[in-house]
Amino acid sequence: MSADARILAGSGQEGHYAKGSRKLTELGPGDASLLRKVNTKVTLRALRHEGAATLTRLGRITGLSRQTVEAVLDELAERGYVRELPPDEGVMGRPARRFAFRADAGYVVGMEIGGDGIVAALADLNGEVIAWRRAEVSGDATAHERLEAARRTSQACVDGAGVARRQVWAVAAGTPGIVDRTGRVSLAITLPGWTGVDLAGLAGRWLGGTALAANDANLAALAEHWRGSARHASDVVYVLTGHRTGAGILIGGRLHPGRTGAAGEIGTLRQVGWEDAARELVKESSAAEVFEAALNGDREAARRVDHYAERLAIGASALALAVDPELLVLGGGHSRAGDVLLEPLRRHLAELCVSAPEVVASTFGDEGVALGAVRLALDHVEREILGI
């Protein structure tokens, strides 16, 4: 066994970076290719975590020799994934070689294809969004019209940012309904003609790369756990409000889509009343106007908000009783109402739950689905392209 294999097999720190890899103590003489892949994986993962680091620092983190780290970084630089930074000025003696991950080596697009609009976000490989694009869509638009709006919006987002379409490594889209593991919408109640749409297959043609699709509430929950209100929680129920009401579930910090992708779709039960409550809230004026009036003391508006919160709490409490989450995140467009909606929701949940979870507003509001789609696309890139 090589020195680097022995170091990796015996070190504790690198175990985090090599998690899930085959044990290096089992490597044989013919496994040099596998060893190079493992070395590349742990080095790239460490560099992304550090942001920028010297050879010595990376060697210390990964347990690899300086020579091995240097060879890996030179190869990654040739592939365009890392770059060598200029030496620090004023340093005596030979300056240390410093490297940084190239977040601009590729990009991902995350999208929400919703009932009344399209939201697209272009992000680099660190997940930093560099461009947004939005477009309105009629609620009764045909599937073809909605898909065309999504195509135009995604392409305009990329083109407007000055990024070549070939640099987009993956696209992910979130949408209402039950989405299976292949990215096909197996059931959609709120969007006309949406059941059966191969969303992942179609989205892959828009920018010429790999495409994925998932339920919108699930992706919004993923976004909150990644960088939002639920980043420190493991078991979470996310309730998406706005044009439609849906829910996503995190168990142990991971999405729980269920056997067919239908987990959390409690709103499909008419007895829960989510659809009726959403319609009643905006029967005479917009949701924003109702929330504003309730905030200003209008009793009728406050009554309508309370009724809406009560119906939300019935479905949310059923999920909370099943999962017993630490946190319930209220997201989507209506989450911007703040305490005028959160307070009655908390009150009704406390009445219905054995032990009500903490209730907080989403960090991202109506951008959560697109950001969750960014995270889904990044997961694919990291696993399938970067190999980390």
Results as ranks from 00 to 15, higher is better:
V305Q: 02
V305G: 00
V305A: 00
V305E: 00
D306P: 00
D306V: 00
D306N: 09
D306W: 00
D306S: 12
H307S: 10
H307A: 14
H307Y: 07
H307L: 04
Y308N: 04
Y308A: 08
Y308F: 13
A309P: 08
A309F: 07
E310T: 09
E310I: 00
E310P: 00
E310L: 10
E310Y: 11
R311S: 15
R311G: 08
R311K: 12
R311A: 15
A313F: 03
A313L: 06
A313Y: 05
A313C: 09
A313W: 02
I314T: 12
G315D: 05
G315V: 03
A316R: 01
A316Q: 04
A316L: 00
S317F: 01
A318D: 06
A318C: 03
A318G: 07
L319S: 04
L319D: 07
L319M: 05
L319A: 09
L319H: 05
L319I: 05
L319C: 07
L319R: 02
A320R: 06
L321Y: 01
L321P: 00
L321C: 02
L321D: 10
L321E: 14
L321A: 12
A322K: 00
A322N: 04
A322C: 05
V323C: 04
V323M: 02
V323I: 11
D324I: 03
D324V: 06
P325L: 05
P325A: 05
P325N: 03
P325F: 01
P325S: 06
E326H: 04
E326Q: 14
E326D: 11
E326V: 03
L327N: 14
L328H: 13
L328N: 13
L328P: 12
L328K: 12
V329C: 10
L330A: 13
L330F: 10
G331M: 12
G331A: 14
G332Q: 13
G332F: 11
G333A: 15
G333D: 13
G333K: 14
H334W: 15
H334I: 13
S335Y: 13
S335H: 14
S335E: 14
R336T: 15
R336C: 13
R336L: 13
R336D: 15
R336N: 15
A337I: 08
A337L: 12
A337D: 13
A337F: 09
G338K: 09
G338Y: 09
D339C: 02
D339V: 01
D339R: 05
D339P: 05
V340G: 02
L342A: 06
L342H: 06
E343H: 07
E343N: 07
E343L: 06
P344K: 09
P344V: 08
P344A: 04
P344N: 07
P344S: 09
L345D: 12
L345P: 11
R346Q: 15
R346N: 10
R347F: 12
